[in-house]
Design a protein around this nucleic acid. Structure first.
Length: 431
RNA sequence: GAGGAUGUAGCUCAGUCGGUAGAGCGUCGGUUUGUGGUACCGAAUGUCGCGGGUUCAAGCCCCGUCAUCCUCCCCA
């Protein structure tokens, strides 16, 4: 039999146990936090009709879809994010009670060129509120995001918020109206923290051939305080609306007690073009170079593509992999090869049933316990526990069992003691 | 998609002037047949990314190709 070369596709990864265990811990906590705010889980198919996804992400986005004909010649594509499938679900289930609050944690696929921290398959984790035009919904998304990070043990982070209406209004003030120009200029402004004001000015003038007066105006806008926005946009309806929205949101966030985590940053733009109002990105102070770990915004027009009517929507999305990386980097989560609290060794075939008895007893007490699957030399069994990072090994032979005892060995310190079987779970739970 | 760098043992890498390969770590075995992680002893391991060319001779030189990493780009 010829051997097949073992390999995975570029941009795709195996998720090994040592990473999956902390990741699942994190995701459980995230899901519980979402549910504590009344968000319900939703699951949608990996594969969608291509037409359901096309035209929602901009021209670039369409090119990044994994798209092909299935065996029945149907034009299909793998989901690119979780927001558009949600919009599709809303279009198919118009009877759903609104506001509809759901969360979804699932992989998405983008046929991008993979790079550092960028993959073709990655996990997204979204919470959205559909059918709530009030800014209270925007504020709630931000509040949930703060709770998630705090529950994960992160306290040093900043959520930068902005409003697309302000950006659109500001650009139209300088006669930048076409979608391509708008996006191009926004993308340019988005680079501000990365490349600095001078370079952004140069880019705006060279690549977008903006007059110096417009560029000056753009930077004047970027330096405005929230309370100056209203005056700056005087007479400009959309701009005034955006200014009011932003200030009202800030007031709400104050009421919710999360203002300390929030910063207004008028240069935040976000890549996807379906955002219509509030937008936000979140950075960990410990490592801002990680990029945004949580972002999103309001998209009041996207749903109309499926339902024919405008349904307001707002949501936030966690960068699961980045967040996990950050948590491990900050020492808040540890890589872990095995979920077991204890390994029960086996001395002989005659004594293995004793090991099974002890293991079952631990499981009934809510502990994770595994019996070594074989009658190997004790050296090998201990070595296995050691390599898997299992903190305790329990040895039980007939002589110990006859006295209702086991040997409990702490693999970190090397200490071992005879423990009554009835007290075993307490010893393990106590650490 | 554009530019740059790198591909040699499971991993990290060395390899001189072209003369068909080496170290450390890891793995396996032993010192301890009911005790790991530290110590000591021993062993196994290669289509030198792939294809072609130059040469008496190529890991090394030339051409092509593929893969990986970095930068630009874009994002989560």
């Amino acid at each position: 039999m010829s051997r097949i070369k073992a390999r995975v596709l570029k941009g795709f990864r195996d998720y090994m146990p040592e990473n999956m265990l902390p990741k699942q811990k994190m995701l459980n906590l995230v899901a519980n936090t979402f549910e504590s705010f009344g968000f319900s889980p939703l699951q949608t198919p990996a594969l969608e009709y291509a037409e359901c996804l096309l035209g929602k992400y901009g021209d670039e986005g369409d090119k990044l879809l994994y798209r092909f004909l299935d065996n029945g010649e149907r034009d299909v594509a793998m989901r690119y994010d979780l927001t558009v499938p949600l919009a599709r679900v809303m279009g198919m289930n118009t009877q759903l009670t609104r506001p509809f609050k759901r969360y979804q944690i699932a992989p998405v696929w983008r046929a991008e060129k993979p790079g550092r921290g960028r993959f073709r398959e990655f996990m997204q984790c979204d919470v959205d509120i559909i059918g709530a035009p009030d800014l209270m919904a925007d504020a709630e998304c931000i509040l949930v995001g703060c709770s998630v990070l705090k529950n994960l043990g992160i306290d040093e982070f900043v959520i930068r918020i902005n409003n697309r209406k302000l950006l659109t209004a500001m650009l139209s003030k300088y006669d930048i109206e076409s979608p391509e120009d708008t996006l191009g200029v926004l993308r340019c402004i988005d680079k501000l923290p990365k490349i600095g004001e001078e370079n952004v000015r140069k880019l705006l003038m060279s690549e977008h051939s903006l007059p110096a007066s417009s560029v000056d105006g753009i930077f004047e806008f970027l330096d405005l305080e929230p309370n100056q926005l209203h005056a700056w946009f005087s007479g400009h309806e959309l701009g005034l609306l955006g200014a009011d929205e932003l200030n009202e949101l800030l007031k709400l966030l104050e009421e919710l007690g999360v203002s300390d985590y929030v910063d207004v940053d008028l240069s935040i733009a976000r890549g996807l073009d379906y955002y219509t109002g509030t937008i936000y990105e979140t950075f960990l102070k410990a490592d801002e170079s990680l990029g945004s770990v949580m972002s999103g915004g309001r998209y009041d027009t996207l749903l109309s593509m499926f339902s024919g009517q405008e349904i307001p929507a707002v949501g936030i999305s966690l960068g699961v992999d980045r967040l996990l990386y950050g948590l491990i980097e900050m020492g808040l989560l540890e890589a872990q090869a095995s979920p077991s609290d204890a390994l029960i060794g086996v001395f002989s075939s005659d004594e293995r049933k004793l090991s099974y008895t002890v293991a079952e007893k631990l499981r009934l007490n809510g502990l994770n316990a595994e019996v070594y699957p074989g009658v190997a030399r004790m050296k090998k069994q201990l070595q296995y526990a050691n390599r898997q990072g299992i903190p305790f090994v329990i040895l039980v032979g007939q002589s110990e069992f006859d006295r209702d005892e086991v040997i409990l060995k702490n693999m970190k310190t090397g200490d071992q003691d005879h423990i009554k079987i009835d007290h075993l779970a307490d010893h393990l739970q106590g650490g």
